[in-house]
């Protein structure tokens, strides 16, 4: 699993470099899903970067669409598109908008950004995979702040009702949302219990430990007759010196000096 850890480090560094060009961005929520992306794109998902539209592929819906830059970094590293494009984030005419767009970016399976909606589209994809007879899985990443949205729970209920055992959801439980700590804004500290009560095969892991995530993903694959939930205990802004530990790190600006320091830290310590 050493290679997954190394892959995660590369994704984190690359993501920071994506932000570097802009001087601001959704740093916090991108950093917290890096290890999960490393596991998914490091072998858990059956995808083909040379054929991004392969119908029988596994699919990923990043419902917390503001994590786009981290996904773009991973996709570029896999060869979905030229790494040089990463510097064009949010620039006029870019194929890499702040939030995921299925039509603009090769490898992005669903357009997201308005929170909660990715849950429903992922459920639709999982139903579609079954209807099509594909032996394929749908992966979905949601945030704990996103769980404030009622649509999240509507989607989870249908996933359970239809016994979508080809659906694995990750809940990035980083404990923070735009206006501060989740416990202060709208307390959802019992999310794992809620997911279990909604009929999900629920596992809780350290979301910054690729080994733990990878093991949970494999267990989820083996689970039958119910959808799976992997609660990722994470830190918003993890591994980024100017973001981690800050209360308001959802969308932040930084100086060149801060970014230099962050890149050096991530290079040496992670």
């Amino acid at each position: 699993m050493q290679n997954l850890k190394a892959f995660a480090k590369e994704i984190r560094l690359e993501t920071l470099r994506v932000f570097e060009a802009r001087g601001f961005g959704h740093v916090g929520g991108a950093m917290s899903v890096v290890e999960t992306l490393a596991v998914l794109y490091g072998g858990a998902m059956r995808v083909d970067p040379k054929n991004p539209d392969w119908p029988g592929r596994d699919r990923l819906v990043v419902s917390k669409g503001h994590a786009g830059p981290a996904v773009y970094a991973a996709l570029a590293m896999l060869g979905y598109f030229d790494k040089a494009l990463l510097k064009t984030l949010n620039q006029p005419g870019t194929t890499l908008p702040s939030h995921c767009d299925r039509l603009k970016t090769p490898g992005i399976d669903m357009t997201t950004g308005s929170l909660g909606q990715g849950v429903s589209t992922a459920v639709g994809i999982a139903v579609g995979q079954k209807l099509s007879g594909f032996d394929a899985r749908t992966y979905l990443i949601i945030g704990d702040g996103e769980c404030d949205e009622g649509q999240v729970w509507e989607g989870l209920m249908l996933a359970r009702h239809r016994k979508l055992d080809n659906l694995t959801v990750f809940c990035d439980r980083n404990g923070q949302q735009l206006d501060g700590f989740v416990k202060d804004v709208l307390d959802t500290s019992d999310l794992a219990e809620k997911f279990a009560a909604f009929g999900f095969f629920t596992q809780t892991v350290n979301g910054h430990d690729t080994e733990e995530i990878a093991a949970a993903v494999e267990k989820a694959k083996a689970n039958k007759e119910s959808p799976s939930m992997i609660v990722l205990n994470t830190k918003k802004g993890y591994g980024c010196t100017f973001a981690e530990g800050q209360e308001f790190n959802h969308h932040i600006a930084f100086t060149a000096e801060q970014m230099k320091e962050a890149l050096e830290y991530a290079e040496k310590n992670l």
């Binding site: 119908p55 819906v61 299925r102 399976d109 669903m110 909660g116 909606q117 990715g118 849950v119 429903s120 589209t121 992922a122 459920v123 639709g124 994809i125 999982a126 139903v127 579609g128 995979q129 209807l131 099509s132 009622g150 649509q151 509507e154 989607g155 209920m157 249908l158 009702h161 239809r162």
Partner: peptide, 28 residues
């Protein structure tokens, strides 16, 4: 029966599920 999906009283979810199905090539 397989191609009819009753989403319950959850219209927002239904529209999203339809979109997911459309992304898989279905015409919902």
């Amino acid at each position: 029966p397989e191609r009819f999906i009753n989403c319950g009283v959850a219209e927002a979810n239904m529209v999203g599920v339809a979109a997911g199905l459309a992304s898989m090539g279905f015409i919902p």
